[in-house]
């Protein structure tokens, strides 16, 4: 069992990929605790294992060795159906390329996690509108992603990640496709939501500006943690 207040606990986490003939060691034994309400930034150059770490933390992938506990549950030990439910109800995801559904409006994109969980349509709409208002997009709910700017799209993605009040949001290069001003605004938004909602944020990035602002900094190199500014502690 994790200690109280610990949302993510990784132990000896390792993952290899086979890319053609070459076997890539993405993670080579990572130990990590991330507490509730933390905003942790996973930094490191490309190929250092940031995305892999987020995938494993979010139950999108299963480690070769080691374990991930999320809210005290070993994700690898859960059946796929259960893991899907954990992602649907307890986790939020934000991706570098936003990954919105292009044929759905901003509001419909945000509604999706509620819709697939059987929440009544009216409540879905209300909560999605609230979430969009929280990210400052109350006026753009009916727009489809292709009518929104990059920053707006990422804000829609953040609203989608938060609409169901998850315990944690995993964001993989959330500012990677944004200019620096927009990036700063997006990060500022996450920071304020973290404070407001108490949601844990784990951000993978190699944006130095973002890394500098992080309260908790985990630096990866070649699949290993080479720096952790405050293991297990809330800022």
């Amino acid at each position: 069992m994790s200690a109280p207040g610990v949302v993510f606990r990784a132990r000896a986490l390792a993952r290899r990929y086979r890319m053609g003939e070459v076997e890539v060691r993405a993670l080579a034994g990572v130990d990590l605790d991330i507490g509730a309400g933390e905003l942790a930034v996973v930094a490191g150059p490309s190929g250092s294992g940031k995305s892999t770490l987020l995938h494993l933390l979010g139950g999108l992938d299963v480690a070769d060795r080691g374990s991930v506990e999320f809210e005290g549950r070993d994700l690898a030990a859960l059946p796929e159906r259960e893991r899907t439910l954990v992602r649907r109800r307890r986790l939020g995801f934000v991706f570098q390329a936003f990954h919105l559904v292009p044929v759905l409006s901003a509001l419909e994109n945000v509604e999706w996690p509620l819709r697939i969980d059987g929440v009544p349509a009216a409540e879905c709409r209300r909560r999605a509108a609230e979430a969009l208002a929280q990210v400052g997009l109350a006026e753009r709910t009916a727009h489809r992603p292709d009518r929104l700017s990059g920053g707006e799209r990422q804000r829609v993605a953040i609203a989608r990640a938060l609409v169901h009040r998850p315990a944690a949001v995993l964001a993989d290069e959330p500012t990677g496709n944004l200019d620096s001003a927009t990036a700063a605004a997006v990060v500022g938004l996450m920071e304020s939501l973290r404070r407001e909602l108490g949601t844990t944020f784990v951000l993978a990035t190699h944006d130095p500006a973002l890394v500098e602002r992080a309260g908790r900094r985990i630096r990866l190199s070649d699949g290993r943690v080479v720096e952790d500014t405050g293991a297990g502690a809330a800022p």
């Binding site: 899907t84 992602r87 986790l91 939020g92 995801f93 996690p113 969980d117």
Partner: peptide, 9 residues
């Protein structure tokens, strides 16, 4: 993406 954010099979 849909699977990642919790859409079931």
């Amino acid at each position: 993406t849909l699977r990642a954010i919790g859409t079931g099979r």
